[in-house]
Simulated assay, not measured.
Amino acid sequence: MTKQEFADKLRRHDAWLPGKRLKLDFGNDGVLLIDGIEERIGEEDSPAETSISISWADWLALSDGELDPMRAYMSGRLRVRGDLAAAMELGSLFKRLKS
Protein backbone atom coordinates (compact mmCIF):
# COMPACT_ATOMS: atom_id res chain seq x y z
CA MET A 1 0.00 0.00 0.00
CA THR A 2 1.23 3.49 -0.79
CA LYS A 3 0.73 6.54 1.39
CA GLN A 4 -1.71 7.88 -1.21
CA GLU A 5 -3.76 4.65 -1.12
CA PHE A 6 -3.81 4.82 2.67
CA ALA A 7 -4.97 8.46 2.59
CA ASP A 8 -7.68 7.60 0.06
CA LYS A 9 -8.93 4.75 2.27
CA LEU A 10 -9.10 7.08 5.27
CA ARG A 11 -11.07 9.60 3.19
CA ARG A 12 -13.53 6.95 1.93
CA HIS A 13 -14.29 5.89 5.50
CA ASP A 14 -14.29 9.37 7.08
CA ALA A 15 -11.60 7.97 9.39
CA TRP A 16 -10.90 10.75 11.85
CA LEU A 17 -11.50 11.30 15.53
CA PRO A 18 -14.27 13.88 16.04
CA GLY A 19 -12.91 17.12 17.47
CA LYS A 20 -9.26 16.02 17.28
CA ARG A 21 -6.47 16.88 14.86
CA LEU A 22 -3.67 14.33 14.55
CA LYS A 23 -0.66 14.28 12.27
CA LEU A 24 1.12 11.17 11.04
CA ASP A 25 4.67 12.26 10.21
CA PHE A 26 6.41 9.75 7.95
CA GLY A 27 9.63 11.76 7.71
CA ASN A 28 10.89 11.95 4.11
CA ASP A 29 7.69 10.21 2.96
CA GLY A 30 5.52 13.15 4.00
CA VAL A 31 2.64 13.59 6.41
CA LEU A 32 -1.05 12.86 6.73
CA LEU A 33 -3.23 15.23 8.70
CA ILE A 34 -6.23 13.45 10.18
CA ASP A 35 -8.47 16.36 10.98
CA GLY A 36 -11.56 15.56 13.02
CA ILE A 37 -12.24 19.27 13.52
CA GLU A 38 -12.66 20.08 9.82
CA GLU A 39 -13.57 16.41 9.09
CA ARG A 40 -10.99 15.81 6.39
CA ILE A 41 -7.77 13.98 5.60
CA GLY A 42 -4.99 16.20 4.24
CA GLU A 43 -1.41 15.78 3.17
CA GLU A 44 -0.13 19.17 4.27
CA ASP A 45 2.17 19.64 7.22
CA SER A 46 -0.10 21.66 9.51
CA PRO A 47 -0.14 21.97 13.31
CA ALA A 48 -1.94 19.24 15.24
CA GLU A 49 -2.65 18.56 18.90
CA THR A 50 -1.10 15.11 18.53
CA SER A 51 1.77 14.17 16.24
CA ILE A 52 2.90 10.61 15.59
CA SER A 53 6.34 10.19 14.00
CA ILE A 54 7.20 6.89 12.34
CA SER A 55 8.91 5.84 9.13
CA TRP A 56 6.63 4.66 6.32
CA ALA A 57 8.33 1.22 6.38
CA ASP A 58 7.69 0.89 10.13
CA TRP A 59 4.09 2.09 9.62
CA LEU A 60 3.50 -0.67 7.09
CA ALA A 61 5.05 -3.25 9.45
CA LEU A 62 2.84 -1.93 12.27
CA SER A 63 -0.25 -2.09 10.03
CA ASP A 64 0.56 -5.67 9.00
CA GLY A 65 1.02 -6.76 12.62
CA GLU A 66 4.74 -7.40 12.09
CA LEU A 67 5.74 -4.60 14.49
CA ASP A 68 4.29 -4.38 17.98
CA PRO A 69 3.10 -0.82 18.71
CA MET A 70 4.36 -0.83 22.31
CA ARG A 71 7.76 -2.16 21.27
CA ALA A 72 7.97 0.46 18.51
CA TYR A 73 7.10 3.19 21.03
CA MET A 74 9.54 1.96 23.69
CA SER A 75 12.38 1.65 21.16
CA GLY A 76 11.79 5.13 19.71
CA ARG A 77 10.71 3.89 16.29
CA LEU A 78 7.29 5.42 16.99
CA ARG A 79 7.17 8.76 18.77
CA VAL A 80 4.09 10.59 20.04
CA ARG A 81 3.97 14.28 20.87
CA GLY A 82 0.78 15.52 22.46
CA ASP A 83 -2.19 13.47 23.56
CA LEU A 84 -1.13 9.82 23.91
CA ALA A 85 -4.76 8.78 24.47
CA ALA A 86 -5.73 10.26 21.08
CA ALA A 87 -2.89 8.32 19.44
CA MET A 88 -4.21 5.13 21.01
CA GLU A 89 -7.76 5.96 19.85
CA LEU A 90 -6.40 6.38 16.35
CA GLY A 91 -4.83 2.93 16.57
CA SER A 92 -8.21 1.45 17.47
CA LEU A 93 -9.83 3.29 14.56
CA PHE A 94 -7.26 1.85 12.14
CA LYS A 95 -7.86 -1.67 13.48
CA ARG A 96 -11.58 -1.30 12.77
CA LEU A 97 -10.77 -0.16 9.22
CA LYS A 98 -8.75 -3.33 8.65
CA SER A 99 -11.62 -5.64 9.56
Rank of each mutant, 00 (worst) to 15 (best):
S53D: 02
L10N: 03
D64R: 13
D58E: 10
S75G: 06
W16C: 07
A15G: 06
D14A: 11
S75F: 01
K3F: 01
A57W: 02
K23T: 03
M74R: 08
R96E: 15
L33P: 05
G36H: 02
D25R: 08
K23M: 04
A61C: 13
R81Q: 15
A48W: 03
H13L: 12
L62I: 05
E49D: 14
T2P: 09
R40S: 07
E66A: 14
G91H: 14
V31I: 03
D45Y: 06
N28R: 14
L97T: 02
I54E: 00
D64A: 14
L32Q: 01
F6C: 08
G42W: 00
E38S: 10
I54T: 01
S55N: 05
L60T: 13
S53N: 05
K95E: 15
R81A: 13
A85F: 13
K98Q: 14
M88A: 12
N28H: 15
D14F: 09
D45P: 04
V31P: 00
D45K: 10
G42L: 07
R77C: 03
L67H: 11
M88Q: 15
G27Q: 03
M88R: 11
R12S: 14
E66F: 10
D29A: 05
D25C: 05
L62F: 11
D68M: 10
E44N: 12
S99M: 09
R79I: 01
A72I: 02
E44M: 05
D68N: 15
A86P: 01
L90A: 08
L78F: 02
W16K: 04
N28D: 15
E44T: 09
L17G: 09
P69E: 10
L90H: 07
A86K: 00
M1Q: 08
Y73T: 03
Y73A: 10
H13G: 10
K95S: 14
A86H: 01
S99Y: 11
E89Y: 09
K23P: 03
R40N: 09
K23F: 01
L90Y: 11
S92P: 03
F26C: 04
I54Y: 00
A85N: 15
R21W: 06
W56K: 07
F94H: 11
D64M: 12
S46W: 10
D35H: 01
E49C: 07
R81F: 11
G27F: 00
R71F: 08
S46V: 09
L24M: 11
L60V: 14
L93K: 09
M88H: 13
L67Q: 14
E43F: 00
S92N: 12
A7G: 05
R79F: 06
D64C: 08
D83Q: 08
R71A: 13
G19R: 00
L97Y: 00
W56V: 05
T50N: 05
L24V: 04
T50V: 06
R12A: 12
E39N: 14
K3G: 02
D8S: 14
E43M: 05
G76Q: 09
W56C: 05
G19W: 00
W59G: 07
D35M: 04
D25L: 03
A15W: 01
V31L: 00
G27W: 00
I52K: 07
L60M: 12
